[in-house]
Write a protein that binds this DNA or RNA. Structure first.
Lengths: 194, 194
DNA sequence: ACCTGAACACCGTTCAAGT
DNA sequence: ACCTGAACACCGTTCAAGT
């Protein structure tokens, strides 16, 4: 059988969700496709490159349309939740996406969409990028912890997060702190009409 | 020769700084100590446990005294910079510490110290923890990116971060956004005297 | 208490060769 | 263009046995 990149990515997503990131090996993907491991290197230069494609696929699957008519803070909130939901939808999704992003491969669109929303509100480009990265670091860090915690619980622990360390409430609260900080610097053009 | 945990951690720190996290294997540590890999399992239950001890060691080495007489925001700022400097002081330090923290092993003190500083300002415990985690997610995410970028540059790339994506300036700027958001919710007891 | 020796069950990646 | 077969140079972890 002959495969394309998309077939391989699809199979990888299946393994990820069923067995987790630790079991997502080149050899495993190859064997599930009935290929030799070396065959994958015809489609991807390295495992990192393949994982980046998988990360992008997860984000694409969870993508929701932009709402350009909404206010900048509503858009940033919506983008953050879209990202969170997309990562939570697959086992180890947050860790995979965060790692791919840290290695500078794939996952370009979230930063750009966040920065665009902020620039649309009149923030200058440099500030918009820093603010977008600040939001993104929070989202990745929070959701990674949240997912680790969920999986630890569903794997038989008693603890149901009694401290509320990493649920939706603390996600929205942490995010609101950053949004408030950004709001505090909003330029004249972004102020609501009086 | 007979070794203790501290000897093993010390050797691991040396390998980390000289060869990076990817080469910090149990077999490498053992061979540099003249031991069989299995000997390490007498001192640590798993590689994760050993890495957590290494992460704690890096943070201990970069520790600076608390300044209880300073204002809460000065203390949070100082703790964030202490953490950043401690991680930047060793190759792949940020990735190691962030990973250990994500796996819930070791690295307990930064969260607690941040939360304590906020509670001292009159914030309630739940808010203090969420705010501390928000700061921590930012610090881990930013410094991980910063260090990846630095190492990519020192490894022969031309790019000297022309976009200022992850330097001290954007660290302070991102952090100030979060601090402003926290400030916005400060309780009565934390307000400056009029 | 601390370590050896040997094994188990894996990895990512390269490369000549095949169709 | 896409893949096989075989190899290279590794992994983390377990466990009986030694001192």
């Amino acid at each position: 059988m002959r495969y394309h990149r998309t077939d391989i990515v699809e199979r990888a997503v299946g393994i990820l969700d069923a067995y987790g990131l630790a079991d997502l090996s080149m050899r495993r993907i190859a064997s599930e496709l009935g290929l030799q491991p070396s065959a994958l290197y015809h489609h991807f230069g390295s495992k990192q490159e393949l994982l980046a494609a998988v990360a992008d696929e997860l984000l694409d699957r969870g993508a929701r349309p932009d709402v350009p008519e909404a206010s900048w803070d509503e858009r940033v909130l919506a983008l953050s939740h879209e990202l969170r939901d997309a990562m939570l939808a697959y086992r180890d999704g947050a860790e995979l996406v965060a790692t791919a992003h840290a290695y500078g491969l794939g996952v370009r669109s979230p930063v750009e969409r966040l920065a665009t929303a902020l620039e649309g509100a009149g923030f200058d480009e440099a500030f918009a990028r820093t603010a977008a990265m600040t939001v993104l670091h929070f989202v990745f860090g929070h959701v990674t912890g949240e997912q680790a915690h969920r999986q630890a619980n569903s794997a038989g622990a008693i603890d149901a997060d009694p401290l509320g360390r990493a649920d939706t409430g603390s996600f929205d609260l942490g995010l609101s702190l950053i949004l408030e900080g950004i709001r505090h610097r909003r330029p004249a053009t972004a102020k609501r009409e009086p």
